[in-house]
Simulated assay, not measured.
Amino acid sequence: MKRIVVVEDDTTFRKLIVSEINKSDSYECIASFSKINDFVKELPNLFPDLFWLDISLPDGLSIDYIPKIKQLFPGSLCMICSMHDDDDKVFAALKAGADGYLLKNSTLEKMIEGIEELFQGGSPMSPFIARKVINSMKLEIPNSELLTQLTNREHEILSSLAQGFQYKEVADQLSVSLETIKKHVQNIYKKLHVQNRTEAIIKYNKL
Score class of each variant (00 low, 15 high):
Glu169Ile: 02
Lys95His: 12
Val170Ile: 15
Ile66Met: 07
Leu16Glu: 04
Leu72Gly: 10
Leu178Thr: 03
Lys190His: 15
Glu117Met: 14
Leu147Tyr: 06
Ile63Cys: 07
Lys70His: 07
Lys70Ala: 11
Met137Pro: 00
Asn105Cys: 11
Leu57Phe: 00
Asp64Glu: 13
Asn45Glu: 12
Cys29Trp: 04
Lys23Trp: 00
Val185Glu: 01
Glu145Asp: 15
Phe91Ala: 04
Ala200Leu: 06
Phe39Lys: 01
His84Tyr: 14
Ile141Val: 14
Ile69Met: 13
Glu117Gly: 09
Leu139Pro: 02
Asn196Thr: 03
Glu28Asn: 12
Tyr189Ile: 00
Tyr101Asp: 04
Gln186Pro: 07
Glu28Tyr: 03
Ile201Thr: 05
Asp99Tyr: 05
Arg197Gly: 03
Ser160Met: 12
Ser24Gln: 10
Leu46Ser: 08
Lys89Leu: 13
Ile63Trp: 09
Lys68Val: 13
Ile21Met: 02
Cys81Ala: 13
Ser34Ala: 14
Lys183Ser: 07
Asp49Glu: 09
His184Thr: 01
Asn45Asp: 11
Leu147Thr: 13
Ile134Thr: 12
Ser76Lys: 03
Lys41Leu: 13
Ala92Cys: 05
Leu103Thr: 09
Gly75Gln: 14
Pro67Gln: 02
Leu72Ile: 11
Ser56His: 09
Glu20Ser: 11
Lys203Leu: 11
Leu158Cys: 07
Ile4Trp: 00
Phe128Leu: 15
Ser82His: 08
Asn105Gly: 08
Asn22Lys: 05
Arg197Met: 10
Tyr101Ala: 08
Lys206His: 05
Gly100Ile: 02
Ile141Asn: 08
Met83Lys: 05
Asp99Arg: 08
Phe165Arg: 14
Arg3His: 10
Phe119Trp: 04
Ile181Pro: 00
Leu16Asp: 02
Leu61Val: 07
Glu8Lys: 11
Cys29Asp: 06
Glu28Thr: 14
Ile188Cys: 08
Ile202Phe: 08
Asp38Thr: 12
Lys15Phe: 09
Phe165Val: 03
Pro127Thr: 09
Ala98Tyr: 05
Leu43Asn: 08
Ile141Met: 12
Lys183Trp: 00
Gln71Lys: 13
Arg14Met: 15
Ser82Trp: 05
Leu94Glu: 01
Asp38Met: 08
Asn105Val: 14
Glu179Cys: 05
Leu207Asn: 04
Lys203Pro: 01
Lys168Ser: 14
Arg197His: 10
Lys70Arg: 15
Leu118Ile: 07
Leu192Phe: 08
Ile157Cys: 06
Pro58Asn: 10
Glu140His: 14
Glu140Leu: 13
Val133Glu: 01
Pro58Asp: 14
Leu43Lys: 02
Asn187Ala: 08
Thr148Phe: 11
Met111Ser: 09
Asp54His: 04
Asn205His: 15
Cys78Tyr: 03
Phe165Glu: 09
Leu118Phe: 06
Asp172Trp: 10
Asp38Glu: 13
Met125Gln: 11
Leu46Val: 08
Phe91Asp: 01
Gly114Glu: 00
Phe13Lys: 01
Ile80Phe: 10
Asn105His: 15
Leu61Tyr: 13
